[in-house]
Every structure is written in C-alpha cells, then in structure tokens.
Computed example of a mutant assay.
Amino acid sequence: MHSLMSDFKRPWYIAGGWAVDLYLGYVSREHKDIEIVVFREDQTFLKDYLGKWDIDKVEDRELKSWGREFLHLPVHELHASNKKSGDKFEILLNETEGLEWVYRRDLRVKMPLTEAGSFTPSGLPYLSPLIVLLYKSKHIRPKDQQDFLIIYDKLSSKQKNWLSNALVLQDPEHLWLEKLREQ
C-alpha cells in the first residue's frame, strides 16, 4: 500500500486492524483486507491519483460505480480494484473541520488533526488507534474486542479519557466503558 500511495500528496492513513498492528509494531492477528483513510475534501485528488483503478462507492448498502461527483455524507466507503493486477482495497472518507478530525457518527467528537494519525519508523502512515477503536465500537465483533484489549494497556490516561468520552456520547452503557474507567 505504501508504494501505491507514496506519490499521493494529501494525507492518507492505513486504517482498521492494520492500523492497530502498525501502532503496536507487530502483527497481532490475521487480516483479510486493507483499508485506508482519506479526508473527504481530498477525494477528487484521490480519484485522479487512482485514475486506472475502478472505484465503487457504497450507497444504500450497495456498490455503485463512482463517477466524478463529489461524495457527501452518508457516503463514506469506497472499494478500489485494479483489474490488471487483481489488487483491491477499501477507502474510508473521513471528515474534518478546520484543523480537527470529526467523527461522522457524532459530529461533537473531534480530535486535532495532528493527533489523528502517526507514522511507523519506516514512514508508513496509520490512523490513530483511538479513532480505529471508536469506529470498531459500534458493532463489536470478536476481532474488534481483541483489538481493544490488546491496545488498552498501551493507552495513556489522556487517550483512555478521550475514548471513554467519545463512547459515552454514542452509548452510555458501552461494553468498553467499564474497563476504560479502571485506569
């Protein structure tokens, strides 16, 4: 992915389970796909950059061809495929407001863009594990619970507080809140 996106001149980050592993510095579990995040305002640059790729948008729970239209919420998920190489990956459009990342499910939840992503020592960008966990928190699958538990001990008190506050807005009885409050 890094070689594919290396000349893309806008922010982008590895997301999902791979972002968790990049944060940890090792592969913690098997991954079936790869997802990246691009900010919504950069989607036209992405479309031009991946000009030879077929890109579909998920709209009304169906894959539909993405033309040249600017995509607005609720559309946030794209699927890119390269018929020549057989490569595929998912692109998640994320929201920003000024110098902040904004959670699309609750626009009150924000994070400074300077904290929304990080880089591995080799320069591979990955999405903050807090943001990854927040997205995973809506419908917790076993792998999401595993990701939460493996990251938990690596989080600072400040990070745990941010995630706890974000989860409370979504679900005051969320499964992860008890552990986050242990601190």
Score class of each variant (00 low, 15 high):
residue 34 I to H: 13
residue 35 E to P: 01
residue 37 V to W: 12
residue 39 F to A: 09
residue 40 R to D: 10
residue 40 R to Q: 07
residue 40 R to M: 07
residue 41 E to D: 15
residue 42 D to Y: 12
residue 44 T to V: 01
residue 46 L to P: 11
residue 46 L to A: 12
residue 47 K to T: 00
residue 51 G to D: 11
residue 53 W to F: 09
residue 54 D to I: 09
residue 54 D to K: 10
residue 56 D to L: 08
residue 59 E to L: 14
residue 60 D to W: 06
residue 60 D to A: 11
residue 61 R to T: 05
residue 61 R to W: 04
residue 63 L to R: 14
residue 63 L to A: 06
residue 65 S to K: 12
residue 67 G to M: 11
residue 67 G to C: 09
residue 68 R to W: 11
residue 69 E to F: 00
residue 70 F to S: 11
residue 74 P to H: 11
residue 76 H to W: 14
residue 78 L to H: 12
residue 84 K to A: 12
residue 88 K to C: 01
residue 89 F to L: 13
residue 89 F to G: 10
residue 90 E to A: 05
residue 91 I to T: 09
residue 92 L to V: 10
residue 93 L to D: 06
residue 95 E to T: 10
residue 97 E to N: 14
residue 97 E to K: 14
residue 98 G to D: 15
residue 99 L to C: 07
residue 103 Y to K: 03
residue 108 R to F: 02
residue 109 V to W: 01
residue 113 L to P: 04
residue 113 L to Q: 05
residue 114 T to D: 11
residue 119 F to L: 15
residue 121 P to H: 06
residue 121 P to Y: 06
residue 122 S to G: 01
residue 122 S to K: 13
residue 126 Y to T: 04
residue 126 Y to L: 04
residue 131 I to P: 00
residue 131 I to Y: 01
residue 132 V to D: 02
residue 133 L to M: 11
residue 137 S to W: 00
residue 140 I to Q: 02
residue 142 P to W: 09
residue 142 P to Y: 07
residue 146 Q to I: 04
residue 146 Q to K: 09
residue 149 L to F: 02
